[in-house]
Design a protein around this nucleic acid. Sequence first.
RNA 1: CGGAGUGUGGCUCAGUCUGGUAGAGCACCGCGUUCGGGACGCGGGGGUCGCAGGUUCGAAUCCUGCCACUCCGACCA
Length: 439
Amino acid sequence: MRLSRYFMPTLREAPSDAQIVSHQLMLRAGLIRQEAAGIYAWLPLGLKVLKKIEQVVREEMDRAGAVEILMPTLQLADLWRESGRYDAYGEEMLRIKDRHERDLLYGPTAEEVVTDIFRAYVKSYKDLPKNLYNIQWKFRDERRPRFGVMRGREFLMKDAYSFDLDAEAARRSYNRMFLAYLNIYARLGLKAIPVRADTGPIGGDLSHEFIILADTGESQVWAHSDLVEMGAPGPDIDWEGDLQPLVEQRTRLYAASDEMHDQARFESEAAEDKRMTARGIEVGHIFYFGEKYSKPMNAKVAGPDGKDVVVHMGSYGVGVSRLVGGIIEASHDEAGIIWPEAVAPFGVAVVNLRPGDSAVDEVAEQAYRALADRGKEPCLDDRDDRPGAKFASLDLVGIPWQLIVGPKGVADGTVEVKRRATGERQTLPLDQALKVICA
RNA sequence: CGGAGUGUGGCUCAGUCUGGUAGAGCACCGCGUUCGGGACGCGGGGGUCGCAGGUUCGAAUCCUGCCACUCCGACCA
């Protein structure tokens, strides 16, 4: 992609609406544009990042045995009347009428729809377990949207729903999601901590929130430092096997956010030098809720004895659009965004410092093609700007590498490679520069 | 939803108190000089001053109503 033909409207100053750094940087880097309170258009760069996060989430869900579907944004109120939530859900639900005066709503979540799909087709315990997920736009009419995409009204969310014969099987489904989530955040270059969450009237210990560490995060977390060190289990675990040990290894260590924190317990469970407190952002929530929806909505399968059994369900959410902001909160500096390579909109920018100079053009084109051939998703900065302006805007939008081609270097057969995250640069012949970037 | 605040060109803001022909910087267009970290000079384009009503010879400015957005609080992926 040639930046001279691209659409990347960067701003030198942040619009005054934006308070937190990720929101400011998303506006300045031209990732999003606000259309209304908590509602955003996604511009090319922002959309690329969003799609990359979405794809990582999708791959890890698939790996863990979940199956993707796509449910509608508009849902029938009647389904929500079945579960009893149509009246229970407050002003946050956007309610709409169609031309036939039928009550619709813009889905804030999809338990009802997925349960309806499930019950229509799945009739036997032999078909369990099932885990259906979708990545879809949701709407919650927040009283007070803020923090840009971190707390918008419209947001992209991955939500998965598991169906099992009993609580024990549901725990196995829960465990798969628990570990899949850790893998997702690790692939996104984030440090995530699973903290025990309030299970409300359901009870039990099967609800966790996933908090990514960021100094500017809105939540406080307290955790045993070994938990952070332990990290993700990796993709190669036996997803069909017994995952309980891997989960317990992580859940037995202390971790809590504001609402569940107990300082006395923290101090008794973690030695003084193992106590970590940090700021973070909640980017995922997994929950076992048993028969809460399956019972009122009559989602049953025939058990081994031929009798109907109400299925046990769980739901598992990842805030995909929120993660865009979350990653920026966790990874930026004074100059702008620093994208982890897994989600960067472009892998490398080939910076032509003198467009129109045929020798420079030629080397830049050559570098661009070589990087494209190697799958590095390069862009070519052939904009007619001064070098400083190019560097500043490329730093701002956070592309991980800059391969700088200028007249001086071309004259003695070299280019410069700059790494965004560290600022380190080296001057090298092109073939070696390519090796550095592709290493 | 309670409290506070802001709406002036694409962005940041001045002008409002004390009514009198709408400003600056950035961005944009043209020309020239520049060209390795958001250049400089000269010239230029662009604004129903959130909307509606009122007061006045005259309203961005005063009054009334409405709308939008932001911040603090209670609530959430």
